[in-house]
């Protein structure tokens, strides 16, 4: 089990406050979604949380240990991270790419052992990419690439998984695949944090949502508590159709809010 505790976290980049006094407790077992408009500080939060970005004030602890004091390798073993728009600089095979996830467990000159082999196979199985093993990763379609990158993160075998916008450029079918994969990992007892833009997906799969705006955490709760008309207007500046009652909750953005001369149309949502 791994849990993350954040207190009074503030990050300034280039003299501008990107994160202001953010506090949260993240526990395993539930799929946690981070939502908010562009520039709300979601990615910055994630990167500061994982020690990838220095922060000016506040504290981030992972299982009681301050992030800044952890050895990079221990941090890597505790929490796997898939950055937004993950790039791949060399045309590696899919299997080799997924194998990169084992690096935190390997010494500089040691060879991967049976345990690493097993973790790689299992990760490819869980992400449903076993059939792609020998393909060149740079030649895959967007959907295949997204699952391969997820498998790379799963291969770390960490108890925590942090994924930044995994749904970008995926078709609806692959979006569902990825979200179900993440939800499964959370059910298995992992700490899973995912940054999302698709509010329907967030409502449908996440157990808990963190709503960010202008560098602050402004709401933290279940999708039903977070996704309200008032918040859509205040945070995203939109009106939308919200239906969280059925098996497939929906949040459909309808119009900019406030919309000049067309209030009644927005009210309909």
């Amino acid at each position: 089990m791994v849990s993350i505790s954040i207190e009074g976290l503030s990050v300034d980049l280039g003299g501008r406050a990107i994160l202001r006094d953010v506090a949260m407790q993240l526990a395993p077992g539930a799929l946690i979604g981070v939502i908010g408009p562009n520039g709300a500080g979601k990615s910055t939060l994630i990167r500061a949380m994982l020690g990838l970005l220095p922060f000016q004030r506040g504290q981030v602890t992972i299982d009681g240990q301050a992030v800044g004091a952890m050895a990079p390798r221990d941090l890597a073993k505790a929490i796997a991270y898939l950055p937004q728009g993950q790039v791949l600089h060399w045309p590696l095979s899919v299997e080799r790419l997924v194998g990169l996830g084992r690096l935190p467990h390997l010494g500089p000159l040691s060879r991967p052992g049976a345990q690493d082999r097993e973790a790689i196979d299992e990760a490819m199985c869980r992400a449903d990419i076993a059939s792609l093993a020998d393909r060149t990763a740079t030649e895959l379609s967007g959907g295949e690439r997204a699952r391969v990158m997820l498998a790379r993160a799963l291969a770390v075998g960490a108890r925590g998984l942090v994924v930044d916008e995994p749904l970008a450029s995926l078709d609806p079918g692959h979006q569902i695949d990825v979200m179900e994969l993440l939800a499964r990992e959370a059910r298995r007892g992992a700490l899973v944090v995912v940054v999302l833009h698709d509010l329907s997906m967030a409502a449908r799969y996440c157990d808990r949502l963190l709503l960010m705006d202008e560098g602050r955490l402004i709401a933290d709760g279940t999708p039903a508590q977070i996704l309200t008309q008032d918040r859509l207007r205040a945070v995203y500046g939109i009106s939308g159709h919200i239906d969280l009652t059925g098996d497939a909750p929906m949040v459909v953005p309808m119009a900019r809010w406030p919309q000049v001369g067309a209030e009644q149309q927005a009210d309909a949502g």
Binding site: L52, K77, Q86, L100, L103, V156
Partner: peptide, 24 residues
């Protein structure tokens, strides 16, 4: 130079990718 082969592999995923794999 031979010591850092694995870190170079990790850099295939960019700097954040490499750091999140424990590369100093």
């Amino acid at each position: 130079l031979l010591y850092d082969g694995r870190a170079l592999d990790a850099l295939s995923l960019g700097e954040d990718g490499a750091r999140s794999l424990g590369v100093d």
